[in-house]
Design a binder for these strands. Structure first.
Length: 302
DNA sequence: CCGAAGCTCAAAGGCCGACC
DNA sequence: GGTCGGCCTTTGAGCTTCGG
C-alpha cells in the first residue's frame, strides 16, 4: 500500500497557518521556490488548489478551511509522539500560552501566574486572546488556537477536559454615597435600582434575575458591558449597581475608585470557574505544567 | 550507474502602494 | 492616470542525495 507523503502534512499545516508560501518556507527553513513546489504536490495529493491567488498573496479554498483543524491536530499529535519522552526543560522553554479568560480570572490571578512563569519558565509568554465570533471556544481549543479556556460555562464539546479552579460568590458594587446605603439593604431595595449586567455575549439576564424571580422581584438592567472592569467605571457618576464576583474586590480596591461593596441581600449559587483544554494536550509536559501552575495560583489566592 | 525526488538559483509575471 | 519599485508566486534549469 502506498502511503501518502507525511511531510506534505507538515508543509500544509505551515501553509494554512501562514497563508503564504514565503511565510511557510521561512518557518520550514526552505526557499520559497521549494515551498511553492511542495504546494504543487499538496494540490495533486488533495485534488484541490488549497491556496489560490488573491492579489499579492494567497487565500484558502473552502476545502482547505475544512481540512485546517484536522491537519493541525494530526501534526500536533505527531509532534507529541516524537517528543513525549523528552524531559521538560522549563528554563529554556520558549512558548506562548494562549488563554481566553475574563477579568474574573485576569484581575486576581494573572499577576501571580505571570510571576510563577517568570520564575520557572522565563522565556514563556502569557497571551490573553480576545473573544472569538459567536463563542467559538470549542473550535479554538480543537484548532490549538487556545491552550486554555477559563470560564464558568459548561457548554463545551464532550471531548473537552475541564478542571475546577476556584469558586466565587457575587457581591455588589455601588458608589460611596449611593442611596442604597441609606437604609437596610433588602432584595426589594436592591431590585429597585438600575443595574449593570456583564456579559461577553451581550446578555441582560442571568442567575441574578432567576433568583429575584423566585422572590417575585424583577430588576432593570440599564447597561450591559463585556467586562466587569468596563462596567465599574460607570458607577461613580450614576446610581447604577454592579454585581461582581467577590474575587475581584481586592483588585478593584487598588484602583482607588470611590466605590463601596455590599453583600447580595438574597441567596445566590456560587460560581465555579474552570479551566478547559483539548485532550491532545493531556500528555504535553509544558501544557501540564501550565495547568498545574495555574491551579496552584488559584488555590493560594483568597 | 541511473532515475526519482527535492532542493537552489535565476528569471518571469502579477499585483499593490507610493509617487509624480 | 501612468510609472516604478517591491513583494509574492511560479517555473525552468541544473545540482545533490538516495535507493534499486
Amino acid at each position: 500500500m502506498q502511503l501518502p507523503d507525511m511531510n506534505l502534512l507538515v508543509a500544509l499545516d505551515a501553509l494554512l497557518d501562514e497563508g503564504s508560501v514565503v511565510g511557510a518556507a521561512r518557518r520550514m527553513n526552505l526557499s520559497p521556490a521549494a515551498m511553492s513546489r511542495t504546494l504543487t504536490r499538496i494540490r495533486d495529493a488533495v485534488g484541490d488548489p488549497v491556496l489560490v491567488r488573491a492579489g499579492r498573496g494567497l487565500v484558502p479554498t473552502p476545502r482547505a478551511i475544512a481540512l485546517r483543524s484536522q491537519v493541525r491536530q494530526v501534526v500536533e499529535q505527531a509532534n507529541q509522539l516524537f517528543s513525549a519522552n523528552h524531559d521538560l526543560d522549563l528554563a529554556s522553554l520558549e512558548r506562548a500560552f494562549n488563554l481566553r479568560a475574563n477579568d474574573v480570572f485576569i484581575a486576581p490571578f494573572s499577576a501571580p501566574l505571570l510571576d510563577a512563569m517568570r520564575q520557572q519558565a522565563p522565556r514563556t509568554v502569557l497571551r490573553f486572546v480576545p473573544e472569538g465570533a459567536g463563542g467559538d471556544e470549542d473550535q479554538a481549543l480543537r484548532d490549538g488556537r487556545l491552550d486554555l479556556y477559563i470560564s464558568a460555562t459548561r457548554e463545551l464539546g464532550p471531548e473537552i477536559k475541564v478542571q475546577g479552579l476556584f469558586s466565587t460568590t457575587f457581591v455588589c458594587l455601588a458608589r460611596n454615597d449611593h442611596p442604597i446605603f441609606d437604609d437596610e439593604i433588602t432584595a426589594e431595595r436592591f431590585a429597585a435600582f438600575e443595574q449593570i449586567s456583564v456579559s461577553r455575549r451581550g446578555r441582560a439576564l442571568g442567575p441574578i434575575d432567576s433568583a429575584l424571580g423566585v422572590l417575585g422581584l424583577q430588576r432593570r438592567v440599564a447597561l450591559i458591558t463585556p467586562s466587569f472592569h468596563s462596567g465599574m467605571f460607570s458607577l461613580p457618576d450614576s446610581e447604577l449597581i454592579l454585581p461582581l464576583p467577590e474575587h475581584m474586590l481586592h483588585s478593584v480596591a487598588r484602583l482607588g475608585l470611590p466605590l463601596r461593596s455590599f453583600r447580595m441581600p438574597f441567596a445566590l449559587e456560587p460560581v465555579q470557574v474552570m479551566q478547559a483544554w483539548h485532550p491532545r494536550f493531556d500528555n504535553d509536559p509544558a501544557h501540564r505544567w501550565l495547568r498545574q501552575t495555574l491551579k496552584a495560583c488559584c488555590s493560594r489566592q483568597p
